[in-house]
């Protein structure tokens, strides 16, 4: 079974925000909600690095652990999805998530945040694959169409890789060999844990 993962190559990411925009486009994500964002550290100074981040579809996902209504789940592919019908919009997943992935359409009085929204790895939600209901609530289900997330597919520099963990680890390792150095891969450890990484690297 494939284990879906993201990897952002910080030595390549140029903060062009194509990934962010592609996600908006593909999933009709409204203004104010960003399933993906690009963060630049040391902005404008030597050592500047940009990193694109969304839900990392963690192995031991903190969001799943804290959701009071247990609406977040992990698919066989390792994709972390949730059921908006059940979500009560408490925001706990946002508190727990290391990557700030969960998003809410509002942050209004009386804790009314609306239904949580986050990156689905372009894999829709619990509704039947490719149904209109699924699209309305969760955006596209590219995985069901045999495609990978659009954010990564459109990345200008191919910094953002998405797909089976073993494969993207291979791609990245090849780059590191070419470069002769580099520790720019990002987010892997925290999201997926050391064991998975070693597995991925062994394969």
């Amino acid at each position: 079974m494939a284990r879906m993962k993201f990897l952002c190559d910080a030595d390549r990411c140029i903060e062009c925000n194509a990934c962010v925009t592609a996600c908006k486009n593909e999933n009709d994500v409204p203004w104010g909600i960003n399933r993906r964002r690009v963060v630049t550290i040391n902005d404008g100074e030597p050592g500047e690095r940009s990193i694109s981040v969304a839900c990392m579809h963690c192995s031991d996902a903190p969001c799943i652990a804290v959701c009071p209504v247990d609406t977040i789940y992990q698919t066989e592919d390792g994709v972390v999805l949730h059921d908006k019908d059940i979500c009560i919009g408490c925001g706990y997943c946002f508190f727990a998530c290391p990557f700030g992935a969960p998003q809410f359409p509002a942050a209004a009085a009386f804790g009314s945040r609306g239904k949580m929204d986050k990156c689905t790895f372009c894999a829709g939600g619990p509704e039947p694959d490719l149904s209109t209901a699924e699209h309305r609530k969760y955006g596209s289900n590219r995985l069901a169409e045999g495609k990978l997330p659009l954010c990564a597919e459109m990345c200008s520099t191919k910094a953002l890789l998405a797909g089976d963990g073993a494969e993207i680890a291979d791609i990245y390792r090849q780059r590191v060999v070419w470069r002769g150095a580099g520790a720019g891969a990002w987010g892997w450890d925290l999201a997926y844990g050391r064991r998975q990484r070693q597995n991925a690297n062994r394969q």
């Binding site: 009709d28 409204p30 203004w31 104010g32 509002a106 942050a107 609306g114 209109t132 699209h135």
Partner: peptide, 26 residues
Amino acid sequence: TSGLAAGGAALAGLAPGAMMRRAEAA
């Protein structure tokens, strides 16, 4: 109404506009 930063509700309607066109087309 444009985002968390402004403290308002998200711009409801914008995406559905786009989404509706898509849905209708489908």
